[in-house]
């Protein structure tokens, strides 16, 4: 518990960034990152659930009996997932149509249960908030990077989330359609993992 709040926050951005360092939460990581917009949208939805669930579980950590803690965590997480789903349907319907089944699937995203079990149920509210935000933003950035890589290579253009689309490749570029299909997700993830492992890790 000697870690400072800043450390709790920044560990999620590099040292324990979920898809690349912990290699957790791969289902949405591979499934939705066909474009930058999808990746960021999914990341933000997950961040919201993660932060809210972390806060509530941390606040209730002395009330929840340890024998049924997993069931309690799931109830809390599932509630916030449905909140996200409903809000997204009401205010960002096109994004909801694109992310489809992956939004309800946040319930079974192991990052959420992992943070609840490993961190929020043992730490105070403030550090749980920092932890949730850090991991969530790290997850969003990872999905964003993966999404833009696949979108640029696969279509030759990039769409700024909730904004306009720009062609970034020269006109002679032949879109590499493989990158936006499912196997391309594995290749892109593998390349990024390799790159990150090249960087010195203490």
């Amino acid at each position: 518990m000697a870690k400072t709040l800043t450390q709790e926050f920044t560990k999620g951005l590099w040292k324990e960034v979920p898809p690349f360092r912990l290699v957790l939460g791969l289902c949405p990581t591979l499934g939705v990152t066909t474009t930058l917009e999808n990746g960021v949208g999914m990341g933000l939805a997950t961040t919201f659930v993660l932060v809210c669930a972390n806060l509530l579980i941390s606040a209730l950590r002395n009330v929840i009996p340890s024998k049924v803690r997993i069931a309690c965590f799931i109830v809390v997480i599932a509630t916030f997932v449905i909140v996200v789903e409903q809000v997204m349907q009401a205010f960002a319907y096109p994004l909801f149509l694109k992310l489809g089944v992956f939004i309800p699937l946040i319930v079974v995203n192991c990052i959420l249960l992992g943070r609840a079990e490993a961190f929020a149920s043992k730490n105070g509210i403030v550090s749980s908030l920092a932890d949730g935000l850090g991991i969530g933003i790290g997850f969003t950035l990872s999905l964003g990077v993966l999404g833009s890589l696949r979108e640029i290579l696969g279509t030759g253009a990039i769409t700024i989330p909730f904004g306009a689309s720009y062609a970034v490749m020269p006109a002679a570029f032949e879109p590499f359609g493989f990158m936006v299909s499912a196997p391309g997700a594995f290749v892109a993830l593998g390349l990024l993992l390799a790159l990150m492992n090249l960087a010195p890790s203490k």
Partner: peptide
């Protein structure tokens, strides 16, 4: 205690979601 906590949590969750709907 287990039964009470889970029941309370589920009830609150149900209420919140019904309101949202």
């Amino acid at each position: 205690k287990m039964v009470v906590v889970i029941t309370l949590l589920s009830t609150l969750s149900g209420g919140l979601l019904a309101y949202l709907q």
